[in-house]
């Protein structure tokens, strides 16, 4: 009974950070998706400079870890260029968005390359332009293949949003840490509730990923 009253007491305190967590999640996911498509399409383009430049971006962001990128953007950008990225919120969103955008661009590239060669050949035979081939034939088939991986990476982005508490954003974990520091004996309960809140946030994406897997498989001969 004591535990139940403690849960009722702690949960609303933690949920004060829910808005920040969700807004960081949505904004960085949108940035990541946009970056993924722009970079992924650049990686399959014939323009050598565009192709190589995006290649460098992807390898740099995939090759270093997100927490290093976050701190680097947080400390280095103001020093290096004398500009602020607006706020800590923007720093977090841009770091997470660019990092997962790099990972997702590889998914986009892989899916486009995985569309059967015969489809491209048929589109050429039908006298379609390069742009038409990509928009009408290849992308609709590739997007279906991307769905499960996009779901998985969205869960990863959700997990990564907890890092913004390290640069002073008041998200769920931030409030959890504040409460833990004032009342250490309740630390286990506080962190278990924090974990459950994150898990509940992840559930729709877990479900969407499974849904995406069935859509990706439907009607595909393999």
């Amino acid at each position: 009974m004591i535990i139940i009253s403690a849960i009722i007491e702690i949960t609303p305190q933690l949920l004060r950070g829910l808005g920040i967590t969700i807004s960081v999640l949505l904004a960085s996911a949108i940035i990541a998706y946009i970056v993924a498509f722009v970079a992924g399409l650049s990686r399959v383009s014939n323009n050598v400079i565009l192709n190589k430049a995006t290649g460098v971006y992807v390898e740099v962001f995939r090759g270093t870890s997100l927490i290093v990128q976050l701190f680097w953007l947080y400390y280095a950008i103001p020093m290096l260029f004398g500009i602020q990225l607006g706020s800590n919120w923007w720093t977090g969103v841009i770091a997470i968005g660019l990092n997962y955008g790099a990972y997702l661009s590889e998914v986009v590239r892989g899916s486009i390359l995985a569309v059967d060669k015969g489809q491209t050949e048929a589109a050429i035979a039908l006298n379609m332009s390069r742009y038409q081939r990509m928009r009408l034939i290849i992308l609709p088939q590739a997007v279906r293949m991307m769905l499960p991986e996009f779901g998985n990476y969205t869960i990863q982005i959700m997990k990564a949003t907890s890092l913004v508490s390290l640069i002073g954003m008041r998200d769920i974990l931030y409030y959890g840490d504040i409460m833990r520091s004032t009342n250490l004996s309740q630390a286990p309960l506080i962190y278990v509730i924090v974990l459950f809140i994150y898990f509940i946030l992840a559930l729709p994406f877990i479900w969407l990923t499974r849904k995406g897997e069935t859509i990706a498989k439907k009607g595909v001969v393999s």
Partner: peptide, 18 residues
């Protein structure tokens, strides 16, 4: 599907008082 950072905090801060 929960953040490793929170799990790390759990092991570091909460496990000793369980």
């Amino acid at each position: 599907s929960t953040p490793p950072l929170v799990q790390l905090f759990f092991v570091y801060y909460a496990l000793p008082v369980v």
